[in-house]
Design a protein around this nucleic acid. Sequence first.
DNA 1: AATACCGTCAACCGCTGGACA
DNA 2: CTGTCCAGCGGTTGACGGTAT
Length: 258
Amino acid sequence: MGHQSCNSAPKQKLRKGLWSPEEDEKLYNHIIRYGVGCWSSVPKLAGLQRCGKSCRLRWINYLRPDLKRGSFSQQEEDLIVSLHEMLGNRWSQIASQLPGRTDNEIKNFWNSSLKKKLRQRGIDPATHKPIGGDASESQEEKPNNPTILSGPVDQVFPNFGQQYFTEHGVTPSMGFYGVNNSELYEYGYGESSSNSGGSNWNCSSVSGNEVLNWDSVTHIGNGILGEENFEPKFGVHTWQEHGDMNGGFEGDFNVEFF
DNA sequence: AATACCGTCAACCGCTGGACA
DNA sequence: CTGTCCAGCGGTTGACGGTAT
């Protein structure tokens, strides 16, 4: 099958468990000198009795020079929580938004610390919704409490921001954005007039700025692109781009988070 | 002082999907 | 098209240190 464990490689006895300082040194020196290349050949070339997978993990989670060590800042903590709300347990995607942190590190931090903190605050870490209590109360509260932010892209979207748009080759524009099957999607951006492209949102032009008709938000879960489970996360009211658009997106936003 | 319990974290395991022959 | 190899991912495990009993 398509899987192989460290046991299936060569008869030679492979070491497991914690890494010794000598092993670390061998692996570190090898990769600094020759780069990674093919992980399966690294142990042989570096003189290690480990499988390539084990070497890869050790490098990524511990030896890499660009790793940030030490405890998580409050800012990082908040970022992890908001990214987890959007992406779920996609630790590598979450880690990609936190320079110097590994997916393993974030996963451990989440499981050992953050989950507990959220529960203490009365928030279910799985759903990010209030635990127990009066469900109707919490549902009523949501639409009445949108968060409206204005400013540069990285300020308004600290949780994925400029990098997200750049990586996805998307210029954020007026419209709805949301989550479907834990992927962030943009829907209907850049469109004016109503119900274009099968989307169920409306907008109109007012003094040169396109304005969303938020009444249509309630319809957005119904069959956009034939998808279910679409969960709107935010809408861009107005925006203005600036800077070098070829080098990545820059702009000022007026955004409403649901 | 002994040991049971708990939290943290490094590392492993097994699965998935992409690349390639 | 099929099979194999491999990197990457997320869940799980186990070692270890600290704290409670």
